[in-house]
Design a protein around this nucleic acid. Sequence first.
DNA 1: AGAACAGTACTCTAGTATTG
DNA 2: CAATACTAGAGTACTGTTCT
Length: 342
Amino acid sequence: MKNNNLNLLGDYFSIRNGLILIKDEIFILKEDNQIIFDGDDILIKIDDKFTKLNPLEKKRLKKVYKSRAVKPYGYLLEEQEGYLLFFNKSEFEQSDIGERDIKISKLYPNLSKYLKQFEQELKETLENANENCYDFYFPRRGSHIRQDRDKGLVNLEPLYDNSPKIFFKFISKENIFGYALDQYYATSDTYFLWSKKPTEFPLLFLLAYLNSSIVSFIFKSKSLAVKRSKTKIENGIPLPAFSKFKTKEKHSIIELIQLLTEWLVYSVNTFKESDVYLIISQLESSYYLQTAENLTYKDRIIKAMNDNDAKYIQEFINNLFYQLFDLDENRIDYLTKEYYNV
DNA sequence: AGAACAGTACTCTAGTATTG
DNA sequence: CAATACTAGAGTACTGTTCT
């Protein structure tokens, strides 16, 4: 059955857990409890006293989320778990252990003091798991990954910090794929898609595809429910061969899918009037919506956008995918309802 | 109460790097 | 270049929580 020409999600993306920490409660600092924000100052609790962090130290605190924050096209801002204390091993690569310790405590005097409160406990955990106990400053997994067998490690910090990324829950029955443009760190109950090689199609198109009813159908028909296993997702989700879409009509569908997805991303996350105006103005020049038979949809889409009706936009995207793949939407709906009980 | 689920982090393994 | 050490990958054991 295996078709060697089939593009799979796993061919283009590595799926990796978020950060696996030695102990979440030590590395994830909760506001008001372990850290306080006072204007531009950040204070951290060490031996029951709040101590002010230096500017370099502030950069080591990252917004961190758990999988309950994941939602289609975005994440729930209010579900931020806390601030991750993230030391990056590659910052200290060249030094030996002793030198590294000194360097850390010089550059990050307060943060290292904070961690040293728990040094014994952290070292014991690492020792027990046969891991290097001197690395108690760092996440155990998820800060660096190997993309290809013959290539070096990729440092994910800049990608977590400031790069568009797609992620989903570690355990989920549905195809819900979140998206973040800004700083988004997550614990190991979230999986991230990290690009292995440039794909032919843009990330927003992939995001739309993964959240579409097509992939929902694939999830159900292949029983791909994510349950502590990523290989099923890597090998179970086919990616369309972009080069097959040759006609102007197909390209106009792809263009419109991206535009609508962009709107969904805005509507789910930071809703800015100016961004929405820009999208609506781009709708005017959409080739797909210019043809006589599709003209009526334009007003309907604009209305849905003004009403913040994400459901309509999602359904429209679903239909666009059916058209793109020359599928009979009624047939898929029938199959889904009849045989998958939804 | 017991089952099912979700979150956490433990641990085995495979592959890479180092060393002698 | 073989032996050994190290590290990241992967799956799951364990535990606390929620559902029935």
